[in-house]
Design a protein around this nucleic acid. Structure first.
Lengths: 114, 114
DNA sequence: GTTCTACATGTAGAGTGCCTATAGGTAGAC
DNA sequence: GTCTACCTATAGGCACTCTACATGTAGAAC
């Protein structure tokens, strides 16, 4: 998975894995990998700054916890974050539609239209 | 269409519009806009440097022409460019599959699988 | 005759955001 | 006492796209 392609979609990814349940950074990375069938390895240097950015934007809220002697910062979606996620999903559908229409112009995708 | 989302997919877009016929920069921008139904407006400051980059990579070849008193640099896909385009298409399918699997985990996309 | 729009190419500099590399620390296995 | 897994975090680099600007022709409008 090319790293550059992810740019601009990281927020959607992070908000999405936090939709079901609050998670801490390390667990978010594992969840991303699990959900993608192992093909998405997001480095910590990407995730932690992104989570802070999303918290600062009001989409996430965090609190510290200590489990088994280890400190964790657990993030959860705010109501603003839920709305942002809905927007990200809509943007994703529009994005794939637009790029798809250029990569597979009408007449070349007959096999896929059923 | 958010500008950041395009990052990493511009090459695929450019190679794709050049697949059918050689075009010059200005015409490429119009073709992109036409194929996307008007939602893709790629600025010249993006396209011209990208075309040079792709030519330098060996995916495109260009030659000058003068039409109606105006100079045009017309680009065409090389055979290497055709292979690159095939790779970009495969990468696009993988990319949308992976992101999609995170944004719409199994169990939430029942309505779209029929 | 000059102003506007469309056509056509190109560069400089800024901004974004993801990456690599590094740093620090706990716990349990061996 | 070393290794691996767990856990958070920052600094600096880099690649790509954007905005803004520079330059020029052609034809229409007025």
């Amino acid at each position: 998975m090319n790293a550059d392609a992810l740019r601009g979609h990281m927020d959607a990814l992070l908000l999405s894995v936090l939709e079901g349940e609050p998670l801490h950074g390390y667990a978010i990375i594992e969840a991303l990998q699990a959900r993608s069938g192992g093909s998405l390895s997001v480095p910590t240097g990407t995730v932690y700054p992104a989570l802070r950015r999303l918290e600062q934007a009001g989409y996430l809220a965090s609190e510290w916890a200590t489990v088994g002697g280890r400190r964790r910062r657990t993030y959860r979606l705010t109501s603003s974050g839920h709305r942002a996620l809905a927007g990200e999903r809509a943007a994703w559908r529009e994005f794939t539609g637009v790029i798809g229409s250029v990569l597979d112009p009408v007449g070349e995708r007959l096999g896929r239209e059923g």
